[in-house]
Amino acid sequence: MRKTAIAVIAAAMTAVLATGCGGDPAGKDADGLTSVKVGIVPFTPNAVLFHAIEGGIFEKHGLKVSTVSAAAPTPIVAAMVSGQQQFGFVTTPVLLNVNAEGTAVKCVTPVDGQISKERDASALVASPKSGITDIKALTGRKVAVVQLSSINLIGAKKLAEEAGATNIEWVAIPFPQMPQALADGRVDGAVITSPYLETALAAGAKALAHPSSDLWPGGTIYCYGATDRYLKENPDVAKKFRDAMIEAIEFGKNNEAEIKKTLEKYLKLSPEEAQKQILPTNYLPELNVASIGDIQNVMEQQGAIKKKVNPEDVVWTPQG
């Protein structure tokens, strides 16, 4: 699980040494805005970021932000390490693992807030062809997750252990491919997120649990991060990015319909589909350090991390 991630990051480190990348290569444009690229895994919670772009919040803070899509967080980390992207989406397990392996990456801001206890955009579901109605029945079955070091895997494995399910075969499948894999019966279950979750449920998949909100309500299960090197070289840019995201998160609390409209453009959803999406957030723009430690404890129990790190060391705080 860790070897693939380590290999990807190691290759990125080689690129850094070869090119000398570290700061923001784009600099400022004609309008005096600092250009930055943000790596994302396209899914519903990015609506806050999309609104900050479309609504002019980043421009207000002196930034010109563009996004680059990836299938999972690990290649995003590699792109940040190589200097191709300045900020990027990272799940807490990936964040902890890359730091444990010596690549210093820190959370800069929440994606959309903390995970809501009442609503979750992701779920552990069973294929309509599997006949499975509870987690224990996943014993001996094949279950898809987006990446074999993801928050989805950590949470689903924890719930499976608590339910007494054993010998589950976990396989990596990108989110957009999961609905068809479930419908075809190529996998018996999946941990899938919006907008792909709604497609799977409409085709007959059965929701068994919501791992993230069931286990870590109010927690930080993912964030937008940056390398420690970039943060030390560009603290002003990082603060602008953080301040803009905080403003966008706080705006979203009372204007959810407006930020969902951005999903039409960025996720290619119809207006009706966009408004039906679940944003799994309490809209509190703080990183929950304690929850990062809780997730790390589960990872240690599962043998999913080589050594523990101090959760406070993986969260960036602006100075002054």
Rank of each mutant, 00 (worst) to 15 (best):
K3R: 12
A12P: 07
M13I: 12
V16C: 02
V16N: 02
G22W: 00
D24K: 00
D24P: 00
A30V: 13
I40F: 05
F43T: 10
P45F: 07
F50G: 01
A52F: 06
I53F: 02
F58T: 01
G62T: 11
L63M: 13
T67L: 14
V68L: 13
S69Q: 14
P73C: 12
I76F: 13
I76E: 11
I76T: 12
V77E: 14
A78V: 07
A78Y: 01
A79C: 08
V81L: 12
Q84E: 15
F87L: 09
F87A: 08
F87M: 10
F89C: 01
F89Q: 11
T92A: 12
L96G: 02
T103M: 07
K106Y: 08
D112V: 10
L124H: 02
V125F: 06
A126V: 03
P128E: 02
K136G: 07
A137R: 14
K142T: 15
A144F: 06
V146E: 11
S149R: 09
L153H: 08
I154M: 13
G155P: 10
L159R: 13
A160R: 01
E161R: 06
A163Y: 05
E169I: 13
L182I: 08
L182N: 06
A183V: 07
R186S: 15
A190I: 00
A190F: 00
V191W: 01
T193E: 09
A200K: 01
A202S: 15
A205P: 10
L208E: 09
H210S: 07
P211W: 10
S213C: 05
W216A: 05
I221F: 05
G225R: 03
A226C: 10
Y230K: 03
N234A: 11
N234K: 15
D236S: 10
V237C: 01
K240C: 05
F241D: 04
D243F: 04
A244D: 05
M245Q: 12
I246M: 02
A248D: 02
I249P: 01
F251H: 11
F251W: 09
K253N: 05
A257R: 14
I259R: 00
T262Y: 05
T262P: 03
T262E: 13
L263C: 03
L267Q: 08
L269A: 06
P271R: 05
P280S: 12
P280C: 11
T281I: 11
Y283M: 02
V289W: 04
V289G: 06
S291L: 10
S291K: 14
S291P: 00
I292M: 04
Q296N: 13
A304G: 06
V315R: 07
V315I: 14
G320S: 15
